[in-house]
Amino acid sequence: MTSGNPTRPGFAPFGRAALFGLALALGSVGGAQAQTEILNVSYDPTRELYREINAVFAEEWKAKTGETITIRAAHGGSGAQARTVIDGIPADVVTLGIPSDIDAIAKISKKIPADWRSKLPNEGLPYTSTVVFLVRKGNPKAVKDWSDLAKPDVKVITPNPKTSAGGRWNFLAAWGYAYEKEGKDKEKANAFVGSFYKNVPVLDTGARGSTVTFAQRGLGDVLPTWENEAFLVLEEFGKDKFDIVVPPTSIYAEPPVALVDANVDKKGTRKQAEAYLQFLYSDKAQAIFAKHHYRPIKREAAKAEDLALLPEIKLFKIEDVQGSWDDIQKLNFDNGGLFDQLSKAGR
């Protein structure tokens, strides 16, 4: 480094700036305290949810064990988050948007056992969700059901199913709807999804990007999205701007959680991470899920007013029509899958 020469006053600023920078750097290192930390790598829409869950869990853990625990959170597109776990982010638990992303971690990195779905209650699902429609106030295009989303004059905003779990649920929901309606004809279901994506002017990389495009930028007539995300938009952008339309049937969306075995054993955080995942099944956490408009698996733990907002709709499981998650992923979203074929045909 070029040290400041006292006879050359012009260089003093360099030395000072460097010292200043160094001081700040040291300050940041000193700021990190030694305490137990666990990292929850999650998908996009759960930011608000886990902020509350993490605070409540830390408090409970402190009361129970006397140990101070910090739960770090990382959010992003579900696929991108799975990739960071594969590439070595020290996640203790993953809470992702779709089972195939956790399968990918298990398969590629072996950091999660292949039978992860049997390790926790309800196949690793502390809550479920579904896809509903967000429309502009008064529903000017009269969107009522999935079939309306394929009409030529309706513009649909949905994220890229390649990068977003929400985008994949939308895709599968549209397909499953058409499959049921067309008398279990796969070709017709494929064609329906094709015309659905012809109505999409913007494919954002994540569910959050699509919401911003629809709500803030004013593009499109309908936003099929996670139920919880639709309610969040009403709260954040104002109930006077949008309506939620609940279709008669929709998909049983499964955002699963799992322990990253290889990482917790290495970090010595298995006890805390397991307790954290168990906590998600506790009455307290279940009530928080309902409060954030996710569907708790223990309805009795949630407040009645929260449950009232989650209407009974006919939900179908995509595994029942397309088979295992391996098949679902391969058939629809892998390179050369249905989505690729449709976008190629639709150009």
Binding site: G77, G79, A80, A82, R83, I86, A104, I108, N160, K162, T163, V200, P201, V202, L203, D204, T205, F333, D334, N335, S343, K344, G346, R347
Partner: peptide, 25 residues
């Protein structure tokens, strides 16, 4: 708009390939 064949740029496709765990691609 990030639409395939219309407004999808090559760097985005790299990010998409990564999300598909297709490092080689």
């Amino acid at each position: 708009g990030n639409l395939p064949y219309v407004s999808e740029i090559a760097p985005l496709l790299i990010v998409i390939k990564l999300s598909e765990f297709d490092y080689e691609g």
